[in-house]
């Protein structure tokens, strides 16, 4: 397994190591804005991303996957935990401890691609201004060098450099998303956080953007943290997948492992909910009862226990730790080794 090789020191090294990340949002009410509760958006999660891989965070809306990505890039202030990022000189820095000024040079190496290509590009800036802005902010190159760089980036994302004086409205959704990718690549980042990058696109255009992202990864040695609710897209692009439920990790594994032999009952339910691609595969779905738990008032014990067909008394009181199972996979379920699950 990939996990083993890293621990033996033979595999690719860890680029980002998230340890015990917590992000709570206060709920404020009334005239004095008193804090009356907390939303536990991300509640003690740990995972690592290796150089050159695509790690995906999946889960239903409100599971904390976007909050995790935003905390890593420090768009949100993490409540607790370590975010160890290996810089170019091989030194591991805890991003959670840096001040925003110290964070600025690191941001060159961490870039983000957003979901909505219609609202993430400033309509009053032309394409040259949009893509060169990160270069300008970081004081890189003269104006003619920047222009050359923008032309090069446009070619990389398969747009014509002649278009650089045009404004975003002249481009389709797929083209705008490629402009967003070009902007993210401008500073030669090492880790790209992509939050639902193809969800806003028409299905016939999604494949273009996914293929481009995979090609860029191969040619530029990029590492992706990919956030998506679309399990089919995740399966296609990822090396490993982190399944989240109400701010916690249910399971980590390769897409094939999670789909063929899920260990956590939630993973099995999630995979089983994905529509089958051919009508002959219509089967009785394993339909989850009930609603996703409320992160402001989560249940005791394992957050999934009220919906879990395998829950025991232990699950109602004790939080299952994320442990490495016998075959080297990470699961947080008290009964992972006893129950037989299938996604189909």
């Amino acid at each position: 397994m990939a996990v083993e090789t890293t621990e033996n020191g033979n595999g690719p090294s860890t680029l980002l190591d998230v340890r015990g990340l917590v992000k709570y949002f206060p709920i404020k009410r009334g005239f004095f804005r008193r804090t009356v509760g907390t939303v536990k958006a991300v509640d003690d999660i740990s995972f690592d991303i290796r150089e050159g891989e695509t790690l995906s965070l999946v889960g239903e809306s409100g599971c904390g996957k976007s909050t995790t990505a935003r905390s890593i890039i420090r768009a949100y202030e993490p409540t607790a935990g370590e975010i160890l990022f290996k810089t170019e000189d091989g030194e591991a820095i805890d991003l959670a401890q840096l001040s925003l000024v110290e964070m600025r040079p690191i941001r060159r190496q961490l870039q983000m691609i957003f979901q909505d290509p219609f609202s993430s590009l400033n309509p009053r800036m032309n394409i040259y201004e949009i893509i060169s802005e990160p270069l300008l902010v970081h004081g890189i190159g003269s104006s003619s060098e920047r222009e050359d760089r923008v032309a090069e980036l446009l070619r990389v994302v398969r747009l014509r450099p002649e278009y650089m004086r045009r404004y975003p409205h002249a481009f389709s959704g797929g083209q705008r998303q490629r402009i967003g990718i070009a902007r993210a690549l401008a500073l030669n980042p090492r880790l790209i956080l992509a939050d639902e990058p193809v969800s806003g696109l028409d299905v016939s255009v999604q494949a273009q953007v996914i293929n481009l992202m995979m090609d860029l990864q191969d040619s530029l040695g990029l590492t992706y943290l990919f956030v998506s609710h679309d399990l089919s897209v995740v399966k296609q692009i990822s090396n490993r997948v982190v399944v989240m439920y109400v701010g916690r990790i249910a399971e980590i594994g390769t897409p094939q492992e999670l789909f063929d032999s899920p260990k956590h009952p939630y993973t099995a339910a999630l995979m089983s909910s994905v529509p089958k691609p051919h009508p002959s595969q219509r089967t009785k779905r394993y339909v989850l009862e009930g609603e996703v738990a409320n992160p402001a008032n989560p249940p005791t014990g394992c957050y999934f226990h009220p919906r879990c067909p395998f829950a025991t008394d232990q699950c109602k009181v004790e939080v299952p730790p994320l442990v490495k199972s016998k075959d080297g996979r990470y699961v947080s379920c008290h009964r992972a080794d006893e129950i037989e699950l299938t996604a189909n």
Partner: peptide, 24 residues
Amino acid sequence: ALQTSIPSMFTSSRERLPSISGSI
């Protein structure tokens, strides 16, 4: 083209799908 370009849980990971060129 729609059927071949859309990822599904049954295509293998890291495979390049044939994409439809252009946009609507």
